[in-house]
């Protein structure tokens, strides 16, 4: 197939890079939520120990 014109090729290239960055952003957001939950639970445990 001949090379696509820039305006048509652009949407495919943008699509591929958006897929990649979306995967990374979603993964980092999930990891961030997990770490925030660990941090919250540690704070609760810390308060519990201090109350003793």
């Amino acid at each position: 197939m001949p090379a696509l014109p820039l305006d048509e090729a652009g949407k495919y290239v943008a699509g591929a890079y958006v897929v990649f960055f979306t995967l990374i952003v979603v993964y980092v957001a999930i990891m961030g939520a997990k770490i925030a939950r660990i941090d919250r639970q540690l704070t609760e445990l810390n308060e519990l120990v201090e109350d003793e």
Binding site: Y12, V13, A16, F20
Partner: peptide, 12 residues
């Protein structure tokens, strides 16, 4: 040969 579309190669 492929033009701008070949940029996908660098992520894929």
């Amino acid at each position: 040969d492929q033009g701008f579309v070949q940029k996908i190669f660098y992520v894929h």
